[in-house]
Simulated scan of single mutants.
Amino acid sequence: MTEQPRHSGRRLLVLAGLLVVCYAVAGIGGWASADAGDVYGSLNRPTWAPPGWLFGPVWTVLYGTIAVAAWIVLRSPGSAPRVAMAWWSAQLALNLAWTPLFFAAGEYGLAFADICLLLAAVVVTIVHFSRTSRGAAVLLVPYALWVAFASALNLSIWLVNT
């Protein structure tokens, strides 16, 4: 009987750790490009570009789902999530690189290359997660769709502002 609560406590610690990692990526990206709102506002953007205020709430939700999806994979019984989590880590690193490339460095072409790699890594992560948990894979679909949209926006901004 005492095994279950301790095991549940460990699971919650793992979830908390994954949330910290994901929101740290967001925080580091924000810190590395503190004037992102001003930069975004100064760019020539397509008419379909969302307002700058929308990015914060969307990414807040997405980072939470990225963490929960990884948590589901890690706690799935009998799973061997090593490869899936390697892809999860790779996509998170590419995610981390994009914000400073785009906003701080103004390297829209490099940022586009990064976000294309990010999208590919997210898709591969979804495929690997689906082998362990369909639910975890489904949690990453909105993230993939948002990154695909952001890729098109990045390309459009790059082409119009260079």
Rank of each mutant, 00 (worst) to 15 (best):
M1G: 07
M1S: 09
T2W: 00
T2L: 12
R6A: 14
H7N: 06
S8A: 14
R10Q: 11
R10E: 13
V14Y: 05
V14W: 08
A16K: 00
G17Q: 10
G17C: 09
L18M: 10
L18R: 10
L18S: 08
L18C: 09
L19M: 14
V20W: 10
V20A: 15
Y23M: 03
V25Q: 04
G27K: 02
G27T: 04
I28E: 00
G30N: 13
A32H: 01
A34C: 06
D38W: 04
V39H: 02
V39D: 06
Y40T: 09
G41I: 09
G41Y: 09
G41Q: 07
S42R: 00
N44V: 11
N44K: 03
N44E: 15
N44Y: 01
R45C: 04
T47V: 11
W48Q: 03
W48F: 12
A49N: 04
W53R: 08
L54K: 06
L54S: 15
F55Y: 12
F55S: 07
G56V: 12
G56D: 02
V58Y: 04
W59C: 02
T60L: 09
T60D: 11
T60C: 11
T60Q: 05
Y63W: 10
T65D: 05
T65L: 14
I66N: 02
A67R: 00
V68M: 05
V68A: 07
W71S: 05
W71A: 09
I72Y: 01
I72E: 03
L74R: 07
L74I: 09
R75G: 10
S76Q: 12
P77H: 05
G78A: 11
R82Y: 08
V83D: 01
V83N: 00
A84Q: 00
M85D: 01
M85E: 04
A86N: 03
S89D: 03
A90G: 10
A90Y: 02
L92C: 04
N95Q: 08
N95E: 08
L96S: 08
A97K: 00
W98T: 09
W98C: 10
W98E: 01
T99N: 09
T99V: 08
P100I: 14
P100N: 10
L101Y: 06
L101S: 09
A105I: 03
A105F: 11
G106Y: 05
E107R: 12
Y108P: 04
Y108I: 04
Y108Q: 07
G109S: 15
F112C: 07
F112P: 01
F112L: 15
A113E: 06
D114W: 02
I115L: 13
L117A: 15
L117C: 15
L118K: 09
L118W: 14
L119C: 13
V122K: 10
V123I: 15
V124K: 14
H128E: 09
T132G: 01
S133H: 11
R134G: 10
G135L: 14
A137E: 01
L139G: 04
L139M: 14
L139S: 04
L139D: 01
L140A: 06
L140F: 08
L140P: 01
L140R: 00
P142K: 07
P142D: 11
Y143W: 13
Y143G: 06
W146I: 03
V147M: 10
V147P: 03
A148T: 07
F149E: 12
S151A: 15
S151G: 11
A152M: 13
A152E: 02
L153T: 02
N154F: 13
N154H: 10
S156I: 04
S156W: 03
W158M: 14
L159C: 02
L159K: 09
T162W: 13
